[in-house]
Amino acid sequence: MFEAQMAQAALLKQIIESIRELITEATFEVSGTGMMLQAMDSSHVSLVALNLRSDGFQLFRADRPFSMGMNLNHMAKMLKCAGKDDTLTMRADEANDLVTFLFESPGNERLAEFELKLMDITSENLGIPDAEYSATVSMPSAEFQRIVKDLGSIGDTVEITVTKDDVRFAASGDIGNATIKCRQLLDTEKPEDRTLIEMVEPVNLTFALRYLINFSKATSLAPSVTIKLSTEMPVVVEYKLSDIGYVRFYLAPKIED
C-alpha cells in the first residue's frame, strides 16, 4: 500500500508539466524515503532526476518499495483537473494497476477522484557519480530562462564559460552572434536574486540550447537555479523544491571531433 498527501496538488502538476516534454513515460520509485524518478529522453542526451522526500509530504506511507510506471501526459491530464488550492492524495496498491489521485478543495466541499492506469516501463537507470564539479553557478531561475530563450533565437548551441569573475553564455548563428555575461552579485535584498559563482577551475562547454530551454520550463518551481559544470561532463541544472526535494536535469555536452 502506498499513500501520500501533498498540501498543493498544483506542485506535482507543475513538476510534471516541466518534465513531460522531455520524457513521456517514467517509473516513479516509491519507498520509505520518498518518491523518486530517473528517466532519459528518447535520444539519451538528457536526463531528469526527481526526488520528493517523504518528510516533505503531509502524510507518507509506503509499506514496501513500489514502482509506478506512468505516462506523464496522461498524468498531466488528470493533474490539470485539480483546483488551484486543492490538496492531493495519491493512493496505490500492488493488487491493481492503478494509482488514484484525490483532489480535495480547501473547504472539503468537493472531492474528485481520478484513477490512472499504471504501465510497465522498461527503462535503464544510469549511475550518476556524486562528483565534485569544477564550477557551480547559482542565479535567479528567471534570468537563466531569459538567457537560454534569448540565445535560442540566435543559435542552436550555447558555449558556457565560467571564470572566477563571471559566467558567459555565447551563441552564434546565421544572423550573427550574442554573448551574455553575468557577474557575481551577492549584495541583494533577497537571497534568491543572487548570482553566485564558485569556481575550482575554469570551464568551457557547449550544449544544445533546445534542451536547456526545455529544462527552464521548471522556472516556476524555484526562484533560483544551480548550474554545475565540469570539463567534458554533463551539466546539471537543479531546481530545489522548497521543503520537499529537487528536480535535476542533466545534459551531455557537445564534443569536439
Binding site: 536526463l47 557519480p129 561532463m233 554533463p234 542533466y250 551531455a252 564534443i255 569536439e256 571531433d257
Partner: peptide, 14 residues
C-alpha cells in the same frame, strides 16, 4: 565540428 554526446558515455549503468 562538434557532435552531441550521449549520457551513456559519461554515466555507467546503475
Amino acid at each position: 565540428k562538434a557532435t552531441q554526446g550521449r549520457l551513456e558515455s559519461f554515466f555507467g549503468p546503475s
